[in-house]
């Protein structure tokens, strides 16, 4: 951090100013003049938090995608399919057992096994052939989308959270002050807070596992130089299968999360594939912190866009991608 501040003093200054403004916007009671210009504080705060929670969901999907790409150079375009499958599996698991929490391990295991099958049956047979992998995974995603339409129907599926997670909770953020002097606090859906916390815990856990454990060391070594790692005697195929299973399982968990606070339906696979592609392009292919940053940016862009300029909200996401590609093609956190 200090090194960054020393080498980029201007950028550090700009980032510091933005952070201060943001903190002021979050904690201060807005003067009426500001409300006239950009609307009520409640709208701003909600868009901010919704963007962060949506970013949490995108992170869950994209981190698996970026991990698989970083280690194996596999562009798995069936990743959205794994998300959708996780959602359906979780929905039925929660319905049959009656326990919402049980949906997560079930989806993780089932989708993880699908990931193993993908790795063993498809990717291992065409190692290093990018174009073939891409085309085959597109084919798989189309076939799977039709099979899921056939099996689960075309209807919207919503996984109901348990009663202790439904409804709003009052936070300590002040949105306005009434004439009587009473402060109005922001109410926020508790399920979104839980999902965001879970995403943060998972992200930190992944970062620790990658940077502090032996397996993480092997994975990082594999990302840097696969051939050299296998030459040292590491059983790289097992690492590959493990990473693929974990990445796929994460997509499955994300499916349950997406089905809980949004809903899942045919077509969501493409939407989340596209979202994770944009996230990893913005964040940098193969980088977990990059995926987190990219997911946060895209989530915020979508939510702020939908409130402040709804007509162009869709464009905003891609505008960010275009800007990143133009000025930092390797992604914000990517290594050139």
């Amino acid at each position: 951090m200090r090194r960054f501040a020393n080498t980029h003093p201007i950028w550090t200054g700009i980032i510091a100013i933005i952070v201060v403004i943001l903190l002021w916007l979050i904690f201060a009671i807005w003067p009426p003049g500001l409300v006239d210009v950009i609307g009520r504080k409640k709208v701003f705060l909600s868009a901010l938090f919704n963007g962060i929670t949506l970013g949490g969901l995108y992170f869950l999907v994209a981190s698996g995608f970026t991990l698989i790409f970083g280690l194996m150079r596999n562009v798995n375009l069936a990743h959205g399919t794994l998300y959708l499958l996780g959602g359906y599996v979780g929905f039925h698991a929660a319905n049959i057992t009656g326990y919402w929490l049980l949906a997560f391990p079930v989806a993780f295991v089932v989708v993880g096994v699908c990931g193993v099958l993908l790795q063993v049956l498809v990717f291992r047979r065409m190692e290093g052939e990018d174009l073939r992998q891409t085309l085959v995974t597109i084919g798989i995603s189309i076939v799977m989308a039709d099979l899921m339409l056939w099996g689960f129907g075309g209807d919207f599926v919503n996984i109901s959270p348990p009663s202790w997670l439904s409804g709003p909770v009052e936070t300590f953020f002040v949105t306005a002050q009434k004439r009587s002097g009473d402060l109005v606090y922001l109410k926020y859906p508790i399920v979104r807070i839980v999902i965001f916390v879970a995403a943060v815990v998972l992200g930190v856990g992944m970062w620790l596992a990658l940077n502090k454990t032996r397996i993480g060391m092997m994975i990082r070594a594999g990302v840097d130089d696969r051939d050299m790692l296998s030459a040292t005697g590491a059983r790289i195929q097992i690492v590959f299968v493990g990473v693929f299973a974990f990445g796929a399982g994460l997509a499955g968990i994300a499916g349950v999360v997406g089905g809980t606070f949004q809903s899942i339906a045919p077509g969501e696979d493409i939407r989340f594939l596209l979202a994770s592609l944009v996230v990893v392009i913005v964040g940098g292919m193969g980088s977990i912190p990059g995926a987190a940053l990219g997911a946060l940016l895209i989530g915020l862009a979508e939510q702020f866009g939908s409130v402040y300029f709804p007509t162009y909200a869709v464009v905003l996401t891609f505008l960010i991608m275009v800007l990143v590609l133009a000025f930092r093609p390797q992604g914000l956190m990517g290594q050139s």
Partner: peptide, 17 residues
Amino acid sequence: RLWVPLGTKDFGSIIAA
């Protein structure tokens, strides 16, 4: 008058607005 795209999944910010 607030407008959302057909097929919107996340209404969080619209609801707040």
